[in-house]
Nucleic acid binder design. Sequence first.
DNA 1: TCATTTTGTGAACACCGTTCACTTTGATGT
DNA 2: ACATCAAAGTGAACGGTGTTCACAAAATGA
Lengths: 210, 210
Amino acid sequence: MREAILDAAERVFADEGEAGLSIRRIADEIDYSPAAIYKYFGSKDELVDILKEAFFGRILQSVHNIVDKSEPFPVRARHCLAGYVCKALEKPHHYAAAFAGESITDRSPEKLAEMADSNRVKAFAVLTGIVTEGIETGHFRPDLPPSDTAKSVWASLHGLAMMFAHFEAFPDLLTMPSGMSRDAFIDFHADLVIRSLERAPGRADTPGRG
Amino acid sequence: MREAILDAAERVFADEGEAGLSIRRIADEIDYSPAAIYKYFGSKDELVDILKEAFFGRILQSVHNIVDKSEPFPVRARHCLAGYVCKALEKPHHYAAAFAGESITDRSPEKLAEMADSNRVKAFAVLTGIVTEGIETGHFRPDLPPSDTAKSVWASLHGLAMMFAHFEAFPDLLTMPSGMSRDAFIDFHADLVIRSLERAPGRADTPGRG
DNA sequence: TCATTTTGTGAACACCGTTCACTTTGATGT
DNA sequence: ACATCAAAGTGAACGGTGTTCACAAAATGA
C-alpha cells in the first residue's frame, strides 16, 4: 500500500513536477480517498521528502559506482563530476525540488543530524573525497582547503544541474546553438571545474569537446 | 496604487518568500479586497514576474557598474562574478524564485523574444562580455568557446547563489566552520571559476582567501 | 461469534487564485 | 446643480489545495 502510494506519487512527480502533485491526485491514481493517504504518511511534505531522499540515494549510488572504478584519477574525477549532473538530470523535477524546499534556517541539533546523513550530504561527501584525493595525490593544488573547495565544486555542479532543470535546453536557449550536445556540455563544464583545481592545468587539449 | 501593491508584495516576498505571498495577504497589507488587485494586475504570476524582473534589473545594474569601472581586467572580472552572487543574495527568495518558476519548455518565438530581453539574460550577457574580453586580451585561454564558457561560468555562479539561497549558512552547514565569511567564500569561488579560464593560472597567491 | 483494532471514507475547515455581478465613487458634460 | 458614465472597489462564490475528524467497514484475534 505504502509502495503503491509512493509509486503513484513518483510517477506524477516525474511527469508534472511538484506543482502537479497533489494528495487528491495521488488518491485518484490509486483509487482511494485523499484521507486514506494520511494513514500512511503524516503529511504531503513527508511523502515528498521520501521521494527526494530516494532520488538522491540513486545519485549517490551512481556517483559511488564511478568513484570506485579502478581508473586513473583524472578520468575518475571527470566522470564523477559529470555523473553527478547527468544522474541529477534524469529527473530534473526531483532534483530542483530537492533543493527548492524551505530555506534551512533551522539549526537545531536534531535537524542538523538528520541533514548530516541525508543522501544529499552523502553525495557531497563523495565529492569531498575526490577533491581530497586529488590534493593528496598531487593532481590538485596542495594549498586548496579541501572542504571549502569541495563545496565550491558542488555549487558549480549544482548550478549547471539547476540551469538544465529550469531551462530544458539550457545551452542552446539563450544564444545560437552551441553545437554541443547536453552531455558534451556537461563534460565541458566538469572539465572547467577540474581545471580550476589542477596544479598544472595547462595541457594542450581543449577541454571536453568530445 | 499599482506602486502600493508592488511595495506590499515586495515586502512580503522578501520576508517570507513566494510561499508566504498570497493575493489575500497583499490585499490585507494595503487594506483592499483581494479582487481589487485584479484591476491592476492580470494574475499573481504577472505581479510576481514584475518583482523578479525588477530584482534582476538591480543585479544587472550592479554588475554593469562593476564592469564599467576602469580597473585592470583581472580584478574587474573577479568583482563582477562575485558581485553577481552578492547582489543575488541580497534577496535570496527573489533569486531562487526567479529560476524556480516553470520549466521553460515553451520555445515559441514570442516567448523566446520576451526571454531574450529579460534582465536575467542581459545580466548573462554581461558575463559573456567579460569572458570574451578575457579571451581577446589574452587573460583567458584563446581556445575557449566564448558563449559556452560564459554559460558554464554563469552556471557556477548560479549554483553558489542557489546554495546560499537554500542553505542560509551554506559553507558552514555541512562540515565544521570553514573560517571563511560568506563574502570570502564567494570570492574564493569566483577565483576558482576564473582560474579555470586563465591561460597561465599558476600564480603563487592562494585564491581569494582575503 | 463477539470484541478490538486496523483501514478507509465523507464531510468539513481554512487557505489558495480567480471571476463576476454588483455597489460605490468621482469626474465629466450640460 | 444635476444627470451620466466610466472607473474603482467589493462580497460572494467556484474550484482547487492540504489536513482533520467523527464515523463506517473490514479484517483480525479470542
